[in-house]
């Protein structure tokens, strides 16, 4: 397992290198002069020159590239043009809300979809199964923002139980943190729940007729244990991949949800920075989001190996 972990960690290095190249090129492949784009049409030649100097755009591109890589390695992502703060600081300040949102969504996803899947599988011979299939299909096909608006209308306007906008950091108390986050996190989770529950159900139904399950039943083990231990453990393996993609999907979803619920997270920062043409921050955010994405994939792979001894012992 240790060897596997080390191998997987090493394989991340080239991926992150390529990501940083792409993020670097983001600025240089955009048509037009970034400094000109940032400052707008009416800017003077001098101020453009000055900004180019500040951004290092006047140096040869190869030098710029090595500077960029060197800066990343030292944790320096440049300065925000808008606020003049270091980009790392800007991103760090916005990290809490996004992380909270994703974490709570993930908890929602797991806490809702696991019992549903087990319940549906236990009731597989009843009418419940086709009903579940229909609902889960519906859940997968519903657009996120549509469902979000529906929930906002239901629980924010018609029955105003939850706030529809804003965020309270956890430092101000777990309760208000949760209070603000429940609705957006639920909306974010809702789209994935159908998919994950469906994946788990399929995996369990597949495993339920396997020879090894018959062996367990022949031991005299009760059916609930057969389902929740043996069948579930095997169904987790194919589901892990989907959970990984789902978490990556959450990352994208946060951009929409944060804007919709005015949560000051990374997603909102990205949108704001695009409006402000704050190139260093855009670059930083894209780089960080990519890094998180790669990290999630790495974690999924490790989890995969943890769950499946056939991979762990190769």
């Amino acid at each position: 397992m240790l060897q596997y972990t080390i191998r997987r960690f090493i394989s991340v290095i080239p991926v992150m290198f390529i990501v940083s190249v792409i993020v670097f090129l983001l600025v240089h492949l955009t048509p037009g002069n970034p400094a000109y784009l940032i400052l707008g049409e009416d800017s003077s030649q001098e101020s453009i020159k000055q900004l180019e100097q500040q951004l290092g755009l006047d140096k040869p591109i190869v030098v710029q590239f090595f500077d960029w890589i060197k800066n990343i390695l030292t944790g320096d992502l440049g300065q925000s043009i808008y606020s003049s703060e270091p980009v790392t600081q800007v991103i760090f300040d916005r990290f809490g809300p996004t992380f909270s949102l994703m974490l709570l969504s993930l908890i929602f996803i797991l806490v809702i979809s696991i019992p549903i899947a087990i319940f549906v599988v236990a009731m597989r011979k009843t009418i419940l199964d086709p009903i579940f299939l229909t609902i889960s299909l519906l859940g997968v096909s519903i657009p996120e923002f549509w469902f979000a608006i529906l929930l906002v209308l239901a629980f924010g306007v018609t029955f105003p139980i939850f706030p529809v906008a804003g965020y309270a950091p956890i430092a101000e108390g777990v309760f208000s943190w949760l209070y603000y986050l429940i609705l957006p996190a639920f909306v974010l989770a809702a789209v994935e729940v159908g998919l994950i529950a469906r994946m788990l159900r399929d995996g369990m139904l597949e495993s339920i007729n396997q020879d090894y399950t018959r062996t367990v039943r022949a031991k005299g083990v009760r059916e609930s244990t057969v389902l929740m231990k043996h069948v579930f453990a095997n169904a987790l393996i194919p589901t892990t991949t989907v959970v990984g993609t789902a978490v990556a999907g959450l990352l994208g979803g946060t951009v929409i949800i944060e804007t919709l619920f005015t949560i000051p997270g990374i997603g909102q920062l990205l949108i704001d920075s695009i409006y402000r043409r704050d190139y260093p921050v855009i670059q930083g955010v894209v780089l960080i989001i990519s890094a998180i994405y790669v990290l999630i994939n790495l974690l999924v792979d490790l989890l995969y190996a943890f769950l499946d001894p056939r991979i762990r012992y190769d």
Partner: peptide
């Protein structure tokens, strides 16, 4: 009454020792 089955390759749960 205990049973053993035809296919030993698939009759043990792969995720438990």
């Amino acid at each position: 009454i205990a049973m053993i089955f035809q296919d030993p390759m698939s009759s043990l749960n792969p995720v438990f020792n």
